[in-house]
């Protein structure tokens, strides 16, 4: 079974070969080289023991959107993995030109204030809203200069991670 791994650096194809190398061991082929790999659960549903090339390490893998967050001892990579298909993959079409920019809550917390109104012009880096979690306040800033098209949240209420707080139309970014 072949898997296409994309997202960090060059795309890789990892083939998991049958039969396995032995009890608790698998055979994988990467870059035309075959490795004998140990793979077993380490902790909870997220942590695994990976052993290859004479080194054993703990790897944390968490699904993240339609990708995987892979954390090694120090490094973290955001990867996508899919069964490799012999047909060329369809590239997802971009929905035309980028016309709006969303300002999203980077973490769940209390939205303290929203500092902009629809129709307001904002400079790049202007404070759009202030969010508070774990007793820390953080400013959400406009990623680009533009005009506020929409404000979707109000101060004083809880927001979840990734929730859209405001939508901006960047200057020169559409009509």
């Amino acid at each position: 079974m072949k898997y296409a791994v994309t997202g960090a650096g060059p795309d890789l194809e990892v083939e998991v070969l049958d039969p396995p190398a032995g009890p608790g061991r698998l055979r994988v082929r990467v870059h035309g080289r075959e490795y004998d790999v140990g793979w077993s659960p380490a902790l909870g549903s997220t942590h695994w023991w990976l052993e290859w090339d004479g080194r054993r390490q703990m790897v944390a893998i968490e699904p993240e959107g339609d990708g995987l967050g892979v954390t090694l001892a120090i490094d973290h990579l955001d990867l996508r993995v899919a069964p490799a298909s012999p047909l060329p993959r369809k590239r997802r079409e971009q929905g035309g030109t980028l016309q709006t920019v969303e300002v999203r809550a980077p973490m769940p917390g209390l939205l303290v204030t929203v500092e902009v109104r629809p129709g307001q012009a904002v400079g790049a880096g202007a404070t759009v809203a202030v969010i508070e979690a774990m007793k820390m306040q953080m400013e959400l800033r406009a990623p680009a200069a533009g005009t506020v098209r929409e404000v979707r949240a109000t101060g004083g209420r809880e927001v979840s991670a990734g929730e859209v707080i405001a939508v901006l139309v960047p200057d020169g970014g559409g009509r």
Binding site: Y3, V5, A8, L12, V14, V16, L26, V28, V30, Y35, V37, W39, W48, L50, W52, Q57, V59, I61, L68, V70, L72, D75, L77, L79, V81
Partner: peptide, 8 residues
């Protein structure tokens, strides 16, 4: 390592 882990 990460790619192998993701595939496995």
């Amino acid at each position: 390592s990460a790619a192998i882990a993701a595939a496995l």
